[in-house]
């Protein structure tokens, strides 16, 4: 499944900061259902907030995964706080910036801001529309692996699969 909610990583300072962008497009099927016309309400295609959170989770997840050479299975464990003040519609560009707040062998917490560029108002540039703070768990150090609860997870890193690798490569991110 191609479950990618960012298009390009545009900046990465290992273990510190990452910036990624996502172009919202009418070619995305779900925009036609979110929201479809109903009664006398015309259709209102906007990117679902849950997918904006997923975009931030992928952005911040790459930063956390990169820190350990993508050996850890980094999974989103908690949304500490999320606020979005404006909708993102087709033709607009979202920019996710995440920084690592804390990190240790079992997981990490990140702080993130979401910005929006409306190309019809390019002079305004990227405008901050919200913030998303997340926590990630290193799966093998929590649920699986020796000495923990012993859950059996596949040994290959199913979190950072082929789609992620392609994104990183096309973004020019060197995988350590």
């Amino acid at each position: 499944m191609r479950w990618m909610w960012i298009d390009r990583v545009v900046e990465l300072t290992p273990r510190e900061r990452i910036v990624a962008i996502k172009n919202v497009s009418l070619a995305e099927e779900h925009l036609h259902d979110h929201f479809a016309a109903a009664g006398d309400q015309p259709a209102l295609p906007v990117m679902p907030a849950s997918l904006i959170l997923e975009g931030m989770a992928q952005t911040a997840g790459i930063l956390v995964g990169h820190a350990e050479g993508f050996r850890e299975k980094v999974v989103l464990a908690k949304i500490g706080r999320a606020e979005l003040e404006r909708d993102a519609g087709p033709g607009m560009t979202l920019r996710y910036t995440a920084t690592i707040e804390r990190m240790d062998p079992v997981g990490a917490s990140t702080k993130g801001t979401v910005e929006l560029l409306d190309h019809a108002d390019a002079a305004a540039g990227f405008v901050r529309i919200g913030s998303v703070d997340l926590m990630f768990s290193h799966l093998d150090n929590n649920m699986g692996g020796a000495g923990r609860s012993g859950e059996a997870f596949p040994s290959h890193n199913f979190v950072f699969g082929e789609s992620f690798r392609t994104l990183l490569r096309t973004s020019g991110v060197v995988v350590p």
């Binding site: 907030a49 949304i79 706080r81 999320a82 606020e83 979005l84 003040e85 404006r86 919200g130």
Partner: peptide, 10 residues
């Protein structure tokens, strides 16, 4: 009022 809010505010 934010369009979308999770977690604690204030």
């Amino acid at each position: 009022m934010p369009a979308f809010t999770m977690g604690r505010r204030g």
